[in-house]
Design a protein around this nucleic acid. Structure first.
Length: 196
DNA sequence: CATACGATTGACT
DNA sequence: GTCAATCGTATGA
């Protein structure tokens, strides 16, 4: 079941992203990811995220700055986009202070606006499979390597985040998915299914 | 320069 | 359940 609508709210300002990734990540749940595809607006509610820090063996920043991860070391509130398995674009939001090397991976989104656009981009998939995975988020919102380092703290930005004032209710934490290191930390966060 | 691999997905047995 | 796809990045010669 998809609830279509046009979410409105405040664009989130940079200072809000200055928290450490494990603290910021659950706060991102319920916020709205907005992207612009060929002049069309596409939006959805963030329902699953993961935190990555600098002293984290599973993080791209663990071995120090490189050309790929330099955005993660930059100021917060910017996108860090990387190509996964040569196929999928994974979308992160840089967290922490300038110089830190942290980010929050957006793992799943519930589409709210621009459903026709998303369905076209994800043709053949059921609604439940549109953006329920990190690679699917990149595909649904047409975010790729060109969006790396984009500043999300402006309404004019091709990709930005809205706080629609929805309270963050029940959050489920678990170990992160698809990693072999640091499997002990519970840095995956997702919203519990809303009970109707 | 050569090469191994991955914060995944979808198709197929 | 298994496995191929596909390429930017990191690493080592």
């Amino acid at each position: 079941m998809v609830f279509e609508g046009t979410p409105s709210g405040r664009v989130i300002e940079r200072g809000w992203f200055e928290s450490d990734a494990p603290d910021l990540a659950p706060e991102l749940l319920g916020k709205v990811l907005v992207s612009r595809i060929e002049g069309r607006r596409v939006a959805g509610r963030i329902i699953e995220v993961e935190a990555y820090t600098q002293d984290d063996p599973a993080s791209h920043t663990f071995a120090g700055p490189t050309a790929r991860n330099e955005v993660m070391f930059g100021p917060p509130g910017h996108l860090y986009v990387y190509l996964s398995y040569g196929i999928h674009h994974c979308v992160n939001v840089v967290a922490g202070r300038d110089g830190d090397g942290q980010a929050v991976l957006i793992r799943a989104v519930e589409p709210l606006e621009g459903l026709d656009c998303i369905r076209r981009r994800r043709s053949g998939r059921r609604d439940a499979e549109l953006a329920n995975g990190p690679g699917k988020v990149g595909a649904s919102f047409a975010i790729d390597l060109r969006h790396n380092a984009v500043d999300v703290c402006a309404q004019s930005s091709v990709v930005h985040l809205l706080d629609i004032g929805e309270p963050v209710d029940s959050v489920i934490t678990s170990a992160r998915v698809g990693i072999s290191k640091a499997i002990d930390v519970q840095w995956r966060f997702r919203l519990a299914q809303r009970t109707p």
